[in-house]
Design a binder for these strands. Structure first.
Lengths: 220, 220
DNA sequence: AGAATATCCGAACGATCGTTCGTAGACTAG
DNA sequence: CTAGTCTACGAACGATCGTTCGGATATTCT
């Protein structure tokens, strides 16, 4: 049929296409983190990746398809670098702390050229309805939901002591500190914001009843 | 001479031009808050404002001039709505609290169509050097500096008790909570983030030693 | 009065955008 | 082998971008 995404892995044609898509998206995510999601232009992406303009348009059908694929690709990298390594820690406070630590490192290390991928992406598409906006919304919703789930798990297991409002506030404040650090670091070209944000996270968690030993990795 | 910005106020030609510039910039700031600073296009601005494309180009010499003027105009409105009213309160904690209250109201009331003007502007131009980036940087630097100055004044007058690190952290965290509220409200179309942010600000100030009565205006 | 300055507009420019078309090559299925 | 599918490319399209030019109008200066 025309659409066969559930094909076997052994199709030389699609394999070649997937390889090209991956190669293009590697450049696309970097470009988006700098230029924003609608600053992404097929022409510049073609020049940067070495492919022809029409090749890229064909691989993703149109620009919207490219944007959706780029969001998915950025999200996958974010998962690999930030979320997945944290899953090796115990659910609850340890995982929450690891998440925040990975998050700060991920921004500081400039995994994407222009800093946090989702900070660059969510700013552009807070307006303009459509599938792309929805994809960004879903990604952000899942991420914030995951942070809140870990906070709640930490409370349930007695590692933090908070009521429902406290859980909501803490899982609102931690990403707030992170995103402020990301933004200020990019604007001033300084690494100090990460230190301040880490200290802020540490104090918030301490005041929520976290054991000092559990916050060791948020130091320095 | 060619550039005479220090002219008297009585020149019908420049007066007419200034009126036009103001009219155009009123639309430009709204458009920028939605589309971002490089999403601003002279063509759409012309269509929205009723002026001809070449008229706008002439009034601001070129696009960069338009962008710089738009940043200045947005900053002026921000001053009028957020900063200036807070100056009626006593320097230090009262002014800091008024500042945060005005800030949340300013975003919630959508003074600009696309939410906070500087949130929309700083995201786009964290990369790409040039005069526009510098103008944005200066504006953000001044704003953050003002918040920190009021925090320090609150400490100096005994309304808050913080060391230097505490001052840095508090004046980092308050805007962080605000910007997170602005971003989440725009993304979900909800007003709840403002409530959460206000509660967060209140708790941070309380823990810094603020009198409960001084935080009355951060409720609800 | 005349020369100079500042808006304003329509028309046109080169550049870039997203998209489509035709064609050629690599691979699979019947 | 043949027919069909997918990838890749160059060329061209209409649209929009920022900018420039010529000319019309209004105001100020000498």
């Amino acid at each position: 049929m025309s659409d066969a995404s559930a094909e076997g892995v052994l199709d030389g044609r699609r394999a070649r296409g997937d390889a090209s898509r991956r190669a293009v998206l590697r450049h696309a995510t970097d470009l988006v983190s700098v230029e924003g999601l609608d600053g992404l232009s097929i022409g510049r992406l073609a020049a940067r990746s070495g492919y022809g303009k029409s090749s890229i348009a064909g691989l993703f059908h149109n620009k919207e398809g490219l944007q959706l694929a780029t969001v998915t690709a950025g999200r996958a990298i974010f998962m690999d670098v930030v979320v997945e390594p944290a899953r090796q820690h115990e659910r609850g406070l340890p995982r929450l702390v690891a998440l925040m630590r990975n998050l700060l490192d991920y921004s500081r290390d400039r995994v994407f050229e222009g800093g946090c991928f989702f900070a660059a992406v969510s700013a552009d598409y807070d307006s303009k309805p459509g599938p792309v906006r929805e994809a960004v919304r879903t990604a952000m919703h899942d991420w914030y939901g995951y942070v809140e789930a870990q906070t709640r798990a930490a409370v349930d297991s007695g590692q933090l002591s908070l009521d429902d409002d406290g859980i909501e506030l803490l899982s609102f404040s931690l990403p707030a500190l992170y995103e402020q650090a990301n933004a200020r670091s990019l604007l001033w070209g300084s690494q100090r914001p990460y230190v301040v944000a880490a200290r802020g996270m540490r104090e918030l968690l301490l005041r929520a009843g976290a054991a000092d030993a559990a916050l060791r990795s948020l130091e320095s």
